[in-house]
Amino acid sequence: MSGAVGREPVFPTRQSLGLMKSKLKGAETGHSLLKRKSEALTKRFREITRRIDEAKQKMGRVMQIAAFSLAEVSYAVGGDIGYQIQESAKQARFRVRAKHENVSGVLLPQFESYTQEGVNDFGLTGLGKGGQQIQRCRETYARAVETLVELASLQTAFLILDEVIKVVNRRVNAIEHVIIPRTENTIKYINSELDELDREEFYRLKKVSNKKQRDTAAADAEILAARQQAEEKPRNGTPEEPEAPDVLGEQEDTDVIF
């Protein structure tokens, strides 16, 4: 029995034995449930990880295409539009909202992009020249950002799942390596204590019965001897003799009763 695990501070009684047994049962059920939850989450987690890996590669490509479309814009406009774009930005047209997906009781946020209607900060940019390229570039970038948002959802799910899986695994491990052994220990302890008590009881009873046998044997012998004496010389000191063993017998008796 590993001393590190220890046992719970209980009195070794039959009642607490019952309690411990039901606790052990509960812990085992909980352990198997959590184990299954952790497995389900891990499965999901691995899937997400794989998708993150893919999405990150995809992002590389998408962003490259987008950057290239910006190059087309600067070719067509023949100048730098960066500053103007930065200054004309006012209201976000491209926004996200969070939805939730339930995976084994864990709420995973899912970003969903949507376009705020009626907001168009750059409608007239490139009016003189390059407007068509800018339009195309906006579309390309909007698609790229959608990919990014998707990736962001995955990444958030990844972080949350990572955290949750850690917690669940910690619980599983705690149950498996601490709670179950400790409860088992306690049960063993209670059992051994109860056995010990049983043995003591048994031994004592045996002792008592031995003593009683001896006493009865002695008493019998005395009675026998007294009878013999009485038979040999009747009417001589008979009332005195039986008193002495009676006194002794009384002392013994109190001991037995305790």
């Binding site: 168009n120 409608g123 007239l124 009016l127 020249k129 068509q132």
Partner: peptide, 16 residues
């Protein structure tokens, strides 16, 4: 002419 044409083309769908 180029500017006129471009402005026209680029103004479709805007508040202009």
């Amino acid at each position: 002419d180029r500017r006129s044409i471009n402005i026209t083309l680029n103004s479709f769908g805007t508040e202009l």
